[in-house]
Design a protein around this nucleic acid. Sequence first.
DNA 1: TTTTAGCACTCATCAAGGAAGAGTGCTAAT
DNA 2: ATTAGCACTCTTCCTTGATGAGTGCTAAAA
Lengths: 346, 346
Amino acid sequence: MDSRNQRILDCIIEQYIDTAEPIGSRAISKQLDLSLSAATIRNVMADLTEMGLLCQPHTSAGRIPTDLAYRYYVQKTVALLAQQPQKVDPQEASYTDEFARRYQRLEDVLQDAADELTASTHCTGLALGPRPSTSKLKRVELIGISQTQVLVVLVTQAGLVKNRIISFRECPNQEDLNKIAQILVDHFVGLGIGEIQESLLETLAAEAQELSAHAIRIGKKALELDATGEVFISGSANLCQYPEFSDHLNLQKVYQRIEDKGQLYQMMDELTQTEGLHIQIGDENQKFGLQSCSVLASTYGSHDNLLGSIGVIGPTRINYPRVIQAINRSSRKLSWAVGHFLSPDR
Amino acid sequence: MDSRNQRILDCIIEQYIDTAEPIGSRAISKQLDLSLSAATIRNVMADLTEMGLLCQPHTSAGRIPTDLAYRYYVQKTVALLAQQPQKVDPQEASYTDEFARRYQRLEDVLQDAADELTASTHCTGLALGPRPSTSKLKRVELIGISQTQVLVVLVTQAGLVKNRIISFRECPNQEDLNKIAQILVDHFVGLGIGEIQESLLETLAAEAQELSAHAIRIGKKALELDATGEVFISGSANLCQYPEFSDHLNLQKVYQRIEDKGQLYQMMDELTQTEGLHIQIGDENQKFGLQSCSVLASTYGSHDNLLGSIGVIGPTRINYPRVIQAINRSSRKLSWAVGHFLSPDR
DNA sequence: TTTTAGCACTCATCAAGGAAGAGTGCTAAT
DNA sequence: ATTAGCACTCTTCCTTGATGAGTGCTAAAA
């Protein structure tokens, strides 16, 4: 595909992203400063259609981009942005102040990240809490709160605090609980909770002779984790305004998917197995029932410790350049936050 | 208004709740076994319209109920249900089993309550966590997690666990933290956290001479609470399917309101200041931007300790009898749960 | 006095038709 | 390779007229 065709395709895509209306050859001919007649554009469009990059809602309508075209466009956009000198975020210097002023809890930071994504993309912003399985343990507390219940408080190095109540027929006294907690911390601090679980039983059994089998069971139960972490959503109401969701059944389907936090977490988790930006367009989301959407997601955390992910859900004609930049910016900021602000001992 | 008019009005309301279409005089005449002609019905309808109970979308359409009519209908329904012998929920005996099997945390119970409301009403179900201000303190733990940060864990008698990280320029050692926590528990256990805050400073200052002013500040900060509690939502996607929300701007507005958890909490909180069922219809929700909706809400908890609330949001032509019963059922179940299952020491 | 039948009237809905306009594909000329 | 021209296709919009649901009013019946 030569560069002229590319320019025409780009123009159609960008126009369509803007207007959501099929684009005709005359409009392109005028818009583009290639001084080509509409007829020539038509020939090119026919070629692009044959290549599966454009399609027509009906015979005498203009063209609209296919998922494939968006895929091409995204590739191009990403390449372009990578080339650009990565200008350091000028606000970065003020991060410390901002965070100190506004945030105490990781949860707030995440909700705010989602809100920021929403504000700058007019779509639905997502921010996922750290993956439970790879979160690194920092602190364990076991607190007996009744005859049969123990409150488990786990603090991870990213600053996430998880608590859960576990029940037993009979639970040890506080002293023993403290002992168990201490052993857990001594052995496992700094390790991923997923790893811990694998080797937990042996370690405990081998090294903690002083404890009863009962206590070991408690320790094991304390480190069981929810399969999914938390999901923070923002701006789901924005989806209503897009004409592609004017079909109510379609809209309802999308909302059903967004509402199921577990599924949403799983989707984002699968999407962001490796560092950096990941984009799924239209039909590529079939598995998650979001065929009419595009999902853009990226990770946050340091290179060797990918904590969680953030993302944006919108129509397939989402403004990719803008969203990609917004996500990258948020990802950097979040990574900074968990690296500097919320780190164990700053 | 005589009983014949009432029967006709009821019929129109129920029909309209079912179909969402304006109801004509002929339809009523057929439906109702009063063997009245359509003309008579028309006269009655004209009266009801004059009374502000019915209105017409346009001159030659059937009638639809006004908010006022729903208000009348709700009053009647509530009275009727109150008369009925309150049959004890036959499932109540199996609550213990169910809860033991499925729930550990109050959060799960609440989410499930919201889900149940959604399932039985096809609307949007809400369940609010206990009001922070009236939640009764059961346990306080202060855990130093870095040079400058203290993790506060509050356990309330309803089984809710709250944690927050607070920062200081310099924080005391763990021993002192334990001491502070102990003092807090000794003085305030069983009291509402709202009350505590009022008398906190004096009590601490007066009784805890041994502690430094710094420690007192920590104690005070530890018991600061978020203004709003948690909100659990279920089935918001259901709203898409109602023809009254086919206007996208309207739908978007509703979703915006539902998305703002803080505002939602405040609304429900205001609505459920007293025990029992509260219903707001249409325009009565203007303050919260939900003019096109009805909100039904009830409290849970015991008579002298109203913990939180649950509710349902739907269109004004929501199926009131069904929803009222569902809410009452869920309210009883939740109250049972926080009373029996999650109580301090069962 | 209440109820009903009858009738004129209003208005939404639907189908059919026609004009306008946007856009295409093809062909022949440049 | 590009372009102008032209026929053709569809959608969109407007009009028209028919249909039908529903009303309000009036006068007669109960």
